[in-house]
Design a protein around this nucleic acid. Sequence first.
DNA 1: TTGAAAGCGCTAACAG
DNA 2: CTGTTAGCGCTTTCAA
Lengths: 328, 328
Amino acid sequence: MAKATRNDVARLAGVSTAVVSYVFNNGPRHVSEGTTQKVLVAAKKLHYKPNSIARALRTGNSNTFGAIINDLTNPFNAGVYEELEMLAAEHGYSTLFATSHASPKREQAVIEQLVNRNVEALFISPCENIELIPLNPETCKFIVFDIDRKINNITTISADYKQAVQIGMNHLFNHGHTNIAMIIGKSKNGITDSRIDGWNLAYAQRGIPAGHIEYSEFTRVGGYEAMLRILDSPNRPTAIFAGSDLIAMGALRALHERGINVPDDMAIISFDGTVDSQYTYPELTTLEQNPQEIARLAFEAATNDDGEPTLHLLKAKLVIRQSCGCNR
Amino acid sequence: MAKATRNDVARLAGVSTAVVSYVFNNGPRHVSEGTTQKVLVAAKKLHYKPNSIARALRTGNSNTFGAIINDLTNPFNAGVYEELEMLAAEHGYSTLFATSHASPKREQAVIEQLVNRNVEALFISPCENIELIPLNPETCKFIVFDIDRKINNITTISADYKQAVQIGMNHLFNHGHTNIAMIIGKSKNGITDSRIDGWNLAYAQRGIPAGHIEYSEFTRVGGYEAMLRILDSPNRPTAIFAGSDLIAMGALRALHERGINVPDDMAIISFDGTVDSQYTYPELTTLEQNPQEIARLAFEAATNDDGEPTLHLLKAKLVIRQSCGCNR
DNA sequence: TTGAAAGCGCTAACAG
DNA sequence: CTGTTAGCGCTTTCAA
């Protein structure tokens, strides 16, 4: 049994093909109750479903989004995209996804692949400096996560890193720490990471010389290795500001291996506030982002035609658990 | 500037539209070198990219897969689908994904949504008893994960749970434990979970009465709550077999809260072997699955037209770390 | 080696 | 309220 088409339905119902269209789209012409029923009965009998590809070709609307994710095993990404996909599905959009595995080359390739599939909007968690990638705003809308500055023609959504780092640092300062190290990812471009701005500002406000910054990948293993390097260096800090929960999990592993007590001998504050941060030992004090809010803003940017691309800067919320030295 | 079509290219190159097609598809007719160059030059000048929707309509091949995932924040799922998507992308397929959020109703809805998008194969990590869902094999291929029995017309890929549980249990027995509890998800159907078969068999072989089985969700919080219930019950076990790394992470949190030492006062073996299992404290001894192998089998099932749907049962590998009592 | 043309399934303008 | 029909961009048969 080949798939039934609109022609088959029209024939069986004894109406024209246009009427079938009108019924399935609730318009643009009205159809009488009796005819509508005939169409519906025929469609049901034939198990007819409109062919979305033909519809997309005809209307020029694919009703499809694209999502490009550098690392899906990062639960923060997973959370955002899960929310985003739900919103999309509820509104009749389907979402194509692709992963770049932290490879700029693959990232470019899949961006092109998805753009050529006529997605209406493309969400990107980039691994490459986004300004190096040619993104033609005439092909589709681009919504890029984790970029905390304004970029032409592109909607960017990010935590307010500068502010967040200051909040975290002040909490650590208040615990009495003065020698604090930060583990963050390498800057992907010439521009100074605003986390570093926040870092310097926080120290300046206390009149303390800024601590050491250790660069790593944004992964568990990256955090692990960075923490080992810090432990093996002279002038060991007493607290760590970790650029993500994943980095903090890696750091924790290194600390456990070396038998260093957290938070007594080394306090940690991390960034993201994913589920994982609640299931480490000790539980992580973390600057929490809200995936729902991020997803909602992204979806709105993808569907609002009038709005100009803008920068959305979101406040992170300090969630106090054990790794900072509170609640022990 | 509207998007260039094949017509524009043909006109600029001074050839027919068919020739443009031949050039871009390498066939089915040969085109002379000179003409090919003319077409390529014109296409480049116009930034022409074939419209994949029109192609899909014409050929009847969408070159699209669908993936339905119950929980994307489970790193095991994330790992499998990341691999799968990479394989797909390398072969020119794009992948639509949707999440069911552990809701059978949503699961049904998104299955229908993706099938109607003419996906060529649909990968499902189901939350509902898969046999309750109408899956018409004429619409597309179905590849279902985590079902360890043969189902008509459907390719199923799963760990060999029965065997895996026995391996894990024997390791725990060899550590001297006799009172072991298992935390697993509720069976989604009338059929006895084969993990329970393995469980009973392992005990029978030792001539020990089988231990307690505690049911939970397959999530961190599910494992946490189940562990608390076990700790509050009489006849506390000395070891836990956790149905997934996530469950084990939850159990670990409960154990830490109660100040119970792992592995001295409570040993744990878990199932999955995701990255997370290496970043817990203590690190988890776990029965590791191979996401690459799973993804490869799934991709092959999706693309091989000749092969009959079958059941793939994969051996899990015991990775020994600390939580069982070894390597302490 | 190239061109003309039919048609994939659908929408919607236009005509009745 | 319903029918006729052009055409979205592409592939491919058939004819030259």
